[in-house]
Design a protein around this nucleic acid. Structure first.
Length: 664
DNA sequence: TGCCCATTAAACAACA
DNA sequence: GTGTTGTTTAATGGGC
């Protein structure tokens, strides 16, 4: 009985190769088309029989899947019993209407498909043998059966045969696809890796690579989620992929805060007929599709590439889904951080509602305007942590109003100006996140001038040739390993433009040095202090990362990042002695270079051999604090804190916050 | 709204 | 002639 039902299931569902629509309409419409076409002579028409059998088959299929999932062997199939494959429990919960050959293919892993197919074949043969040709051999059965069935039930039985072949083909295709994606060796269970797990595995710096790795895995899972077959427990949170797959409505994920995310992280590549000059997925001559770095000379080539390599298939939709999950997590995290900020500000007697202190983005979530944030990109001050990087890190210029790329890749339309402002603590920022910038294709939130200055001051002689500056850029930032013409020109432009950069004729030729006085001059006289530091605070980054759950896979990175961040704040002096902390903070955070040197050197990674002493006599640490520049923010911050936060309305309010947060 | 600043692009010259 | 280096100008856009 089960055998027959199961076979029918496959057959009926397989008959609809192009989607579930017809299948759904059959069952949902209550009546099948057959109702009108079928015989109404009182006898059970083939169609009616088909329908009944279909229902039974679906039940059987569910049971089959359940058994597979629970490790129980099917009483009717030894083949299945032999198969170690496991079907996610949720699979068994799928509604009958949803099973289509394609879905089967997508839902089941190759071993599962194989097992099921074998079972179906065995059952079919048994049925045929028992019902029609008991004495025939198996090889002969199919031929004979097709004739008899054609006579008795019309094309139904023939279709069944065809479906079997179809299933085989689908299975083969599926296997081939997996092979192409390097999933050959994938364990059955891996196909059902929850998106969340994948997300957590996403590390800022490794996101790009992770995409490549995950995308393929996701494809299997994605398939399962198609048509609402979401393995995740949170079905409401999952996107239902209709036959049209990534449709515009997909991105509408209800957020925990009740908001709807209308972002379309990754629009279906196949739907963008817009061959506009700029494309969210195209930049710097590269395809920005997660995990894809294909070089495309022009937009035309890119479009071609997009349509060919990122067409509407399981893999693309899976990647799209992952991207959406990433975005969603970021949004959630942003909301959390905003709440924390509000609480902190409240605690510090600040004006909780004032969005100013931190960049808007941080407060947008609380204000309920996540969409706006999208266009704004990540908090400019944020180095677009890995998290953001969460993924391939693709600088998205003129980024679309989609949070995905811009925020995730962190490079979006960053306002260098702001960045300059709060990036001033470039030293500490770079010191703590240098690895991130080295690996992630994220545009550093620093101005060219800041970077150049840092590069020069970081050098042993505090002087660099233009080429050495270039090398520093490329060495320190993955972002500057491309578009060399653009940023190199910008570097030259900055060197020439800013008086703080002095060209000195050297024995080796011309070298560039920094005139600190001039550099400080050009800095805005009044900076609010820590806020900038805070904006780019690695701690914040760390929190975001940890909050995002980038645990397992990027544990090392996270740990390193957190450690580096904490190293600054957890020094004995800071922790044990508030006074000492102030001094320490002042020393550490006050100057880009000086702090960088110490930090970096302590980390032993970024800054090439320059001891604090070396910087010491050149960088007048003592002098800078008086300038009330960003560099001196730590001081003001500490001072503010120790002074009982007596400036509620002042911009310095923000200054107070950071210390508190970081010292936590 | 206007100014300031940063970025980007480009033209041009000098030089190796 | 080519590429690099350096200077300068202009356009653009965002922040204040």
């Amino acid at each position: 009985m089960m055998v027959e039902s199961a076979t029918e299931t496959i057959r009926t569902t397989s008959s609809n190769q192009n989607g579930v629509s017809s299948l759904s309409s059959q069952s949902e419409g209550g009546g099948r088309e057959g109702g009108s076409n079928g015989d109404t002579n009182g006898e059970i028409s083939p169609v009616d029989l088909l329908h009944l059998q279909q229902q039974q088959a679906l039940q059987a299929a569910r049971q089959f899947l359940l058994q597979q999932a629970t490790g129980l062997s099917s009483p009717s199939s030894n083949e299945v019993k032999q198969s170690p494959v496991q079907v996610p429990v949720s699979m068994a919960m799928m509604t009958p209407q949803m099973i289509t050959p394609q879905q089967m293919q997508q839902i089941l892993s190759p071993p599962q498909l194989q097992a099921l197919l074998q079972q179906q074949q065995a059952l079919m043969l048994q049925q045929v043998t028992y019902t029609h040709t008991p004495s025939h051999s198996v090889s002969h059965t199919q031929h004979t059966q097709s004739k008899r069935w054609r006579n008795r039930l019309g094309s139904k039985q023939l279709a069944f045969q065809q479906q079997l072949i179809q299933m085989q083909q689908l299975q083969q295709q599926h296997i081939l696809n997996l092979q192409r994606q390097g999933l050959v060796g994938l364990q059955p269970g891996q196909g059902a890796v929850p998106i969340q797990s994948l997300q957590q595995a996403m590390c800022p710096t490794d996101l790009q690579q992770l995409w490549k790795d995950v995308a393929s895995v996701q494809s299997a899972e994605e398939a399962i989620k198609h048509e609402g077959l979401d393995l995740s427990t949170n079905s409401s949170n999952s996107t239902s992929y209709s036959a049209s797959k990534v449709s515009p409505q997909i991105p509408h994920h209800p957020l925990p805060n009740g908001q709807n995310s209308v972002h379309t992280p990754k629009r279906d590549s196949s739907t963008h007929e817009e061959h506009t000059a700029s494309h969210p997925l195209y930049g710097h001559g590269e395809c920005k599709w997660p995990g894809c770095e294909a070089l495309c000379e022009d937009m035309g080539q890119f479009i071609k590439h997009l349509n060919s390599e990122h067409a509407l298939d399981d893999r693309s939709t899976a990647q799209c889904r992952v991207q959406m999950q990433v975005v969603q997590q970021l949004e959630i995290q942003l909301a959390k951080e905003s709440e924390r900020l509000q609480a902190m500000m409240t605690h510090l007697h600040m004006r909780p509602s004032e969005p100013k202190p931190f960049n808007q983005p941080l407060n947008l979530a609380s204000s309920g305007s996540l969409l706006k944030r999208d266009s704004e990109g990540f908090p400019e001050g944020l180095p677009h942590p890995p998290t953001s990087a969460a993924t391939p890190i693709t600088p998205l210029r003129q980024g679309p109003s989609v949070i995905s790329s811009s925020s995730l890749h962190g490079v979006g339309p960053i306002r260098r100006r702001n960045s300059d402002k709060f990036c001033t603590p470039i030293a500490s920022e770079l010191a703590q996140n240098c690895e991130f910038y080295k690996n992630a294709d994220v545009r550093p939130p620093f101005t060219y001038a800041s970077l150049i200055r840092h590069a020069i001051l970081e050098s042993p002689d505090r002087q660099l040739t233009l080429n050495e500056i270039y090398n520093w850029f490329t060495r320190m930032f993955a972002y500057f390993r491309r578009n060399t013409a653009t940023w190199k020109n910008a570097v030259r432009h900055n060197l020439s433009l800013h008086k703080c950069f002095v060209r000195v004729e050297n024995v080796k030729g011309a070298v560039w040095t920094v005139d600190e006085v001039e550099y400080q001059k050009r800095r805005p006289p009044k900076m609010t202090g820590l806020q900038d530091t805070l904006r780019v605070s690695p701690t914040l980054v760390k929190n975001m990362i940890s909050g995002l759950g980038f645990g397992s896979l990027n544990a090392s990175y996270q740990a390193a990042l957190a450690e580096s961040s904490l190293s600054l704040l957890n020094s004995p002096t800071l922790v044990n002695n508030s006074t000492g902390a102030s001094l320490n903070m002042l020393h550490v955070g006050h100057d880009d270079v000086s702090s960088t040197v110490e930090q970096v050197n302590s980390n032993g990674s970024c800054s090439p051999g320059l001891s604090p002493q070396q910087y010491g006599h050149h960088v007048h640490v003592k002098e800078e604090p008086a300038e009330m520049e960003e560099d001196s923010r730590p001081v003001s911050l500490i001072a503010s804190v120790t002074q009982n936060l007596s400036m509620p309305g002042d911009e310095r309010d923000m200054d107070e916050e950071l210390p508190t947060e970081e010292l936590e």
